[in-house]
Design a protein around this nucleic acid. Structure first.
Lengths: 216, 216
DNA sequence: GTCTATACTCGGATAGAC
DNA sequence: GTCTATCCGAGTATAGAC
């Protein structure tokens, strides 16, 4: 936030962000000192204050940037999908890929909320709610059209988001399964959890299948 | 761990655990001082060291106690269920109720792992894996019998656990929905995510429905 | 078992020279 | 913009009196 494009100091500020991101994600915000961050950039601690007024401002900057980028990315991606079913599948795939590729940002955005002053906390929480609203709208549309069988849209949205984001806590690249494989599994589980027709075997071939409602 | 039953000091130690639990859950382990914990018990900081050798020992004690109690509770509860489908429904209900009733313990056990020294970390992680194993066994049995359609049992187990535990991050008693209502929704979603028959409308009346496999 | 007092280290943040 | 030096508060943990 508030970056002066083209200025020399902005390059240093960006390196500060990167070093702080790694350290916060690895040890936790409270356990990281300004001296450590400075060392990661090759500076003395005092020099950090030319770029950020406080330690918490660095954290808030990282979180806001992450949430805004996430929202912007989905706003582009979401244009591809015409039906609620396609949109849900697209959301699952997008959320998984985006979050797995930004592990550090996701980690601090979910773990360090309580280290924010109220003003920053409210702002980040608002952005998060806004992002969750995308999924709620998809589920609402599908429930209205009969594609989904959902007892409570806000609850279903939170359940799905938690399931998807949970991937970040255990998935490691180079393990038994690839991202693509895990993504397919999650798509099936997510769709199965809200669709009256249940799990569709071999449903991973495209995003634009039309599904008519099938009551219980 | 290592409690001397009946001793006078154990009462104080228990009060220390309680105060530390509340503080760790509220502000984060790293942000809580021994002075704060002592004040919560009505002691001076130095007196804490009569009961715990270090600050981290308090954290590890709380985590181990939580995980062992959780495992013991499920080992009792699990005897009630005869089929994989009933066991999965029972697990979902148990996990939700147990975790929502121990919000503080759950919170620190998931958030403060990185503040543990390797020895303690390995121990807690082992207990967590052991608990997750309960769900894996249920899913494996159901997949073998044809009740479930699961592409990968370990992945499905992690996805379900994340969905269930995620409840703790947003559910608040006294809100729009009761625990019972949310529990029903999660049961349907969890079963729907792994059952080829999909969501069963009105499936919340009991835990022992027999379900025969129904392929796609 | 608890107290007071304190050793020792480290934290965030600032001032002023260059 | 970065450096060195420093302020000042707070951290964990210990020592010894009671």
């Amino acid at each position: 936030m508030a970056r002066k494009a083209g200025s020399v100091g902005e390059e240093t500020a960006e390196r500060v962000r990167l070093a702080a991101l790694k350290l916060f994600a690895g040890k936790g915000y409270a356990a990281v000192s300004m001296r450590e961050i400075a060392a990661g950039v090759g500076l003395q601690a005092g020099a950090l204050y030319n770029h950020f007024p406080t330690k918490q401002a660095i954290l808030a900057d990282l979180m806001v940037a992450h949430m805004e980028a996430l929202i912007a990315a989905w706003e582009v991606e979401s244009r591809k999908f015409a039906t609620p079913v396609a949109a849900l599948e697209g959301f699952v795939r997008f959320h998984i890929r985006y979050h797995l590729s930004r592990g550090d940002e996701v980690f601090i955005s979910y773990m360090e909320l309580r280290n924010l002053e109220p003003e920053n906390f409210v702002r980040i929480e608002g952005l998060r709610k806004y992002y969750e609203g995308f999924l709620r709208k998809i589920l609402q549309a599908g429930a209205a059209s009969g594609s989904f069988s959902i007892a409570d849209v806000p609850v279903a949205a939170m359940a799905l988001i938690a399931m998807l984001t949970g991937l970040n806590t255990w998935f490691r690249a180079g393990g038994r399964l690839s991202v693509d494989e895990v993504e397919e599994i999650y798509v099936k589980m997510a769709l199965g959890s809200v669709m009256p027709g249940g799990i569709m075997q071999g449903s991973s071939d495209g995003a634009a299948r039309g599904l008519t409602a099938a009551g219980s």
